[in-house]
Structures are given as structure tokens and as C-alpha cells.
């Protein structure tokens, strides 16, 4: 069954059109990467899917219900959204951040906080304050905060962009693997990671949907080169892919 459906999405701000009338259907269990050059509308699409961006036209359905009609609290429990940048204004501890994240659920199993702490390897960090955490630790805390209520849908906006390669790999793999039993839609900057870890890839450019295909098929598609304005050398690297760009 489709978990999230975008129908004829259109988003315009002033004179500029950010998303130009396209539709997408997401299953309840799959992992999808969204790629595209700068300004393609990736973040706008993600916010529209999360129900936090006002639509100019079209609608988003969560299951059978119109997302715009859903009470904000219910939406927050059903859709986990990982922003591109996150910096709390107060220097909360890891345990406190998880508590705030858990607070948005109407009810949680008693061991939800414990489970999240274990799943994201935060044991021993509970009392540490945000300002003292490394980039990799921060990424795990953020993920734990968003996922502590175990939302059926996860939307993540390039959360790995500022991480070093090992932590980026860990994070993107975690996000992709969540597609095994949930829906996980991730804006990915690193094309190698997008094509290596995700089964399905959505390609955007200038607010338009260029392609929405299986990763294995899109990797060979010449539209990829066209959209990014380069010529890619496609190298098979172990289980994944390496794309080398030339002009």
C-alpha cells in the first residue's frame, strides 16, 4: 500500500516556481534517494512531503488522509523530519533532547527512550551536553530524537553533508536500511552513496521531476549527465558505484 502520495505538487514563492506540477508515490516500505543539482527543489519537495511547506497547488496524502487536514501533532508523530541544519538554542543534554523528541508522541512504550539510546549507540552519552558532542555524535542524537517515536515515514534532508566520510557512510546506510520495514526518503548530495545504498532514485532539476527510477537503471541514464552539466564516468566499485565527473 502506498504510504505517502504527492499529487500534482506545485510550490511557488513570489515570482519563482520552486516545484512545477509533478506527482510521486511512495510505498510503506522502501528507501528513496532524492538527487539533483543546487536549487533543484530537493529541500522544498521534502518539506512539502513533510507537510511543513504551504502548497500552491496539488496535495499530499498520508495513507488515505490529506496531510494538510491532519492536526500538527498527529503529523509530527507519523512523519519524522530530519532538517539539513540543526542547532538547539539551549545547551540541552542528550537525555533531555531525547525527552523533548519523545514528548511529541501521545503515548510511547515504556522502553522507547532506552531502545533509541541503544539503537543509536548513545549509551554513556546521556548526560553530555550538545555543545560538547562531536559531529558524528550529534548526527546520531538528532536521528534518535526524530526516530524515538518510531514514525512510519522518515524524511531526511542531507543531514550528512557536514560529516566526515566514515560518519556520513554510517548515517546514510542507517537511513537507507530503515527502508526495510518503513518508508525512508532522503535527500542525498553524494551521488555515489545515493546509487550504492538506495533502490530507487528521484532526480530533480529546476523544480521539475526529471526521472523517478530504480537506481540500477537511472545510473546508466544520459539524463544524469545532462542535469548535472558534466560527463560521468561510471565505475563499478564493489557493491556500489563510483561516479567520476569530467567536463
Amino acid at each position: 500500500m502506498s504510504a505517502l502520495v504527492a499529487e500534482n505538487l506545485r510550490v511557488a514563492r513570489g515570482k519563482s516556481t520552486l516545484l512545477r506540477d509533478f506527482s510521486l508515490v511512495f510505498d510503506a516500505t522502501e528507501s528513496v534517494a532524492i538527487i539533483g543539482p543546487n536549487g533543484a527543489g530537493k529541500s522544498t519537495l521534502l518539506k512539502a512531503l513533510a507537510g511543513t511547506e504551504a502548497l500552491t497547488g496539488g496535495r499530499v496524502r498520508l495513507g488515505r488522509r490529506n496531510l494538510a487536514d491532519l492536526p500538527a501533532a498527529e503529523r509530527a508523530q507519523a512523519i519524522g523530519y530530519l532538517p539539513q541544519h540543526f542547532g538547539p538554542h539551549w545547551d540541552l543534554s542528550v537525555a533531555e533532547l531525547l525527552e523533548v523528541g519523545a514528548g511529541r508522541a501521545r503515548s510511547l512504550p515504556a522502553d522507547a527512550l532506552e531502545k533509541a539510546t541503544a539503537a543509536f549507540e548513545l549509551g554513556g552519552l546521556e548526560r553530555r551536553r550538545w555543545s560538547t558532542l562531536s559531529g558524528g555524535e550529534r548526527a546520531r542524537v538528532l536521528l534518535a530524537m526524530v526516530l524515538v517515536v518510531d514514525p512510519p515515514v522518515l524524511l531526511a534532508d542531507e543531514p550528512a553533508a557536514s560529516l566526515d566520510i566514515r560518519h556520513r557512510l554510517d548515517l546514510v546506510r542507517t537511513l537507507a536500511e530503515r527502508g526495510g520495514d518503513r518508508l525512508s526518503v532522503v535527500v542525498v548530495h553524494d551521488l555515489d552513496l545515493a546509487f550504492s545504498f538506495f533502490k530507487r532514485v528521484v532526480l530533480l532539476a529546476d523544480g521539475e521531476l526529471i526521472a523517478d527510477e530504480a537506481a540500477a537503471r537511472l545510473i546508466a541514464d544520459p539524463r544524469l549527465d545532462e542535469v548535472f552539466g558534466v560527463r560521468f564516468e561510471r565505475l563499478r566499485a564493489g557493491e556500489g558505484w563510483h561516479l567520476r565527473a569530467c567536463r
Binding site: T52, A72, E74, A76, Q77, F86, V100, R104
Partner: peptide
């Protein structure tokens, strides 16, 4: 951004 995503 996070507050909106958390339903506030």
C-alpha cells in the same frame, strides 16, 4: 524548523 516538524 525542528519545532514545526515536531508539530508545534
Amino acid at each position: 524548523a525542528m519545532a514545526i516538524a515536531f508539530g508545534l
